[in-house]
Design a protein around this nucleic acid. Structure first.
Lengths: 155, 155
DNA sequence: CGTATATTGACATTATCATGTCAAATATGG
DNA sequence: CCATATTTGACATGATAATGTCAATATACG
């Protein structure tokens, strides 16, 4: 049959989800190895990235929401980052307890070093794919994300 | 410029990876909620699926390799599944210690119940995507997986 | 057969994640 | 202003995952 049936599409999506689980874990492991020379892990790197990406410094709970992650785990990792002097807290004029998280110079250097390790490799990796396929994959996964976020919120 | 530059593709891939992290976590959480009525979790469900998919019963270590997961964690989960009488061990003619993992009738029923919960939802979810986009996403992620598996093995 | 190597399950340890609770601080609605 | 609900960081606890080690077993190779 030319037109894909409902079931065929559902099976394809199932296969995609299983592939995503694998690719996700492999990517995290790859990231761990990649940035370990600068003392980071995938998790710490992601959190540094979240801090860099926001326009203005935010408290931990906001960063956690941005990341779609657990507030408590983000807190723990950011506390670790503070011990390593990669981030520091600065007073929040709007909230006495919820301090703002900012990168220290060391934190900025570390993040840049991670990016410098990452950039050439992701460029090489991207060579293997067409821009169209990457775009299609992005469409599917971000739509999936939106859908599941809605489901998680409502129901 | 019409032709996507190296950097543009690399940025698109980076964005895709970040989306994948989110979609992966949301999918696992969704799966946890989905199959919790039958006493499963995403992790237990995946392992049951691996047991079902293989033609012939396999020992724990082989299943772990199939899943690309930790041998020890799979062992722990399968031990839990045995306590719940969803799987049982049967003697392996080729190996005295490495027993073969098989589903019990209760395990089969539970797995089928999970599938019955899952099927209509994944069909509904698949409606939102074109078969072409799903295929493209599958191509990208499985190529990514292959690439990273190679890197992990060599490097 | 005999030896070296690899595999496997059991066990222990540590790290990471998930979840709930609490008090302080803030925001909201009268 | 007051009462209530929400947010936030701190803390505790249990679940899950990652990593290393060990003895038993199996495999490969002379």
């Amino acid at each position: 049959m030319a037109r894909p049936t409902k079931k065929a599409k559902a099976e394809a999506l199932t296969e995609l989800l299983l592939t995503m689980f694998r690719a996700n874990n492999l990517t995290l492991a790859w990231g761990d190895r990649l940035v370990s020379p600068v003392g980071l892990t995938s998790a710490r790197w992601q959190i540094l990235g979240a801090i860099v990406l926001v326009d203005r410094p935010q408290p931990v709970a906001w960063l956690a929401r941005d990341l779609g992650a657990n507030r408590q785990n983000v807190q723990r990792i950011i506390n670790d980052l503070k011990k390593d002097e990669l981030v520091s807290f600065e007073p929040n004029p709007h909230h006495k307890r919820a301090q703002l998280v900012v990168l220290t110079p060391k934190g900025q250097q570390t993040y840049e070093a991670a990016i410098n390790l990452y950039s050439p490799l992701v460029e090489a990796l991207a060579e293997d794919f067409s821009a169209e396929d990457i775009g299609a994959a992005q469409r599917v996964l971000s739509a999936l994300r939106t859908k599941l976020e809605t489901l998680a919120a409502d129901g």
